[in-house]
Design a binder for these strands. Structure first.
Lengths: 123, 123
DNA sequence: GAGGTTGCTCTACAAATGTAGAAAATTAAA
DNA sequence: TTTAATTTTCTACATTTGTAGAGCAACCTC
């Protein structure tokens, strides 16, 4: 099952913190903070969906992600590519570089990454 | 407002066809086809959300997208980048190349694209 | 040890989503 | 022209999402 939008936002915070108590998570939200019960509900649903677990640490729980950000994100992107780009990563990459307006520096950086990848692949 | 998942799928077909009658759209779906009323409902909602319009063409309507795929997709990706990569395209690109397991050929292709972009930028 | 604070579960409820039947209107087909 | 298929609107209903109060248990504080 998929995370909903709000759940995803919460997950982001959890990925950043790696481990967190309710209060830590609550703190992460910008000012008109959601009610603590809202966060609690979300965490519960996320547990049911298998994205989050916790360690009972004294009185309360220290939550942590069960799914790595890279995994989650990777499958997300693959989904997009499949849906919009006929499953062609290169087609996507092409679109991406053209459309997202990378700076010269970013482009250089990206090329370096790719070169490294190519090298890695060759060995 | 955003398209929901099913709406997005339908939109995909519409982008592919460019213009389409109900029946054309219905045909696009793999076998356990949704009921025609389902498609109709979706189209209606998509019109309300401003993603689709139509020309009354004789008895029925020829639907067409109001939003270009590249625009829709671009803002989608930008959203992801913002949410997951701290708004850094390069960070995203790096992740992308590392994680999506491009083939050697795709990597070469991608590098060519980037080189071209760099060139374009320099001029 | 009485009262506030925190974190949790349970319950609730409005809005959005996924799905489609009923019915009307139109048209194609026999 | 009677019948059958097509397209649309309306209505409906279960599920999921966003949001949070009520209430309870555990703790902290004086």
């Amino acid at each position: 099952m998929q995370l909903s939008n709000t759940e995803e936002e919460l997950m982001e915070h959890l990925w950043n913190l790696e481990k967190a108590y309710m209060s830590d998570l609550l703190e992460q939200f910008p000012d008109p903070r959601p009610a603590p019960t809202t966060i609690a509900t979300l965490l519960k649903r996320m547990q049911e969906k298998g994205f989050v677990s916790y360690n009972q640490h004294g009185r309360s729980r220290q939550y942590f992600p069960l799914v790595a950000k890279t995994d989650y994100f990777g499958s997300h992107v693959r989904g997009l590519i499949k849906k919009f780009f006929n499953n062609s990563s290169a087609q996507f990459a092409s679109f991406f570089t053209k459309e997202t307006d990378l700076s010269a520096k970013e482009l250089e950086e990206l090329r370096a990454i790719i070169d490294k990848e190519i090298e890695r692949k060759e060995s």
